[in-house]
């Protein structure tokens, strides 16, 4: 059984039909990439899974249980962390406070401190800046903080929305390294949305290609990477 199943999901923004029937599954312990051009509906798919958006049609199940219609804060409590598009760091909270907020659902103070230390070990840059306000971090540092914040609950399923956006090539590599390590060392299941298709297909086992609200192609990441239309559209020929 898959950890996450999205079945025939249709989502709207007012009258805009953003998802026109999306089906995808993510198995426990997998890294799955979701790629596609601008406006394809990748962000909308993640929002629908994490409860920020309620689909008009279709079902989302997590660990065998339907989570459609649940509030985002309840879905999160099931073990799904969503690193949203644009990082959404709390600008007037310090780095530390952002991490504390990430651990809002964790009551064991010792555990919170342990995970915070883990986060700082993962991103030493954040450790140096723990008392700095989130809004004053650089884009790359905010991205690190967004990921570290999502890890404060040690999620079973991590939804990552374009973690490489706006980062220097070196940062991008760091971020993908961490994605791989999380999956390998902690067994975290990851659904990775990316514009940087070549990187994403490098770390993912399977991939889905989304186009104007529909899944166009799916399969093993290596096969998707070899597909002629994908190469042309997303991998630069």
């Amino acid at each position: 059984m898959s950890l996450l199943e999205v079945k025939g999901v249709q989502s709207y923004y007012g009258h805009i039909h953003a998802l026109k029937g999306v089906d995808l599954t993510v198995g426990e312990g997998e890294v799955v990439a979701l790629i596609g051009g601008n406006g394809a509906g990748k962000t909308t798919t993640l929002r629908t899974i994490s409860g920020m958006l309620r689909p008009k049609q279709g079902d989302v199940t997590y660990a065998g249980r339907s989570i459609v219609g649940m509030a985002a804060h309840d879905i999160m409590s099931l073990g799904i962390s969503h690193v949203p598009e644009g990082r959404r760091i709390f600008p007037q909270l310090t780095v530390r406070e952002n991490l504390d907020i990430g651990a809002y659902k964790v009551s064991n103070r010792k555990l919170i401190q342990e995970r915070m230390d883990e986060g700082f070990a993962l991103f030493p840059r954040l450790a140096e800046r723990r008392t700095q306000l989130g809004g004053t971090l650089s884009g790359g540092e905010q991205q690190m903080l967004a990921i570290a914040r999502a890890l404060m609950v040690d999620p079973k399923l991590l939804l990552l929305d374009e973690p490489s956006m706006g980062l220097s090539p070196k940062f991008v590599e760091t971020i993908f390294d961490i994605v791989e390590r999380l999956n390998r060392e902690r067994g975290t299941t990851i659904l990775l949305v990316e514009q940087n298709a070549s990187m994403a297909l490098g770390v993912a086992r399977r991939a889905y290609v989304l186009q104007t609200g529909e899944i166009r192609l799916t399969g093993d990441a290596a096969d998707v990477a070899r597909d002629a239309s994908v190469r042309e559209a997303y991998l630069g020929g």
Binding site: G51, H73, G102
Partner: peptide, 8 residues
């Protein structure tokens, strides 16, 4: 919105 993603 983001506070909801934090479980709040």
């Amino acid at each position: 919105t983001t506070s909801g993603l934090m479980g709040i």
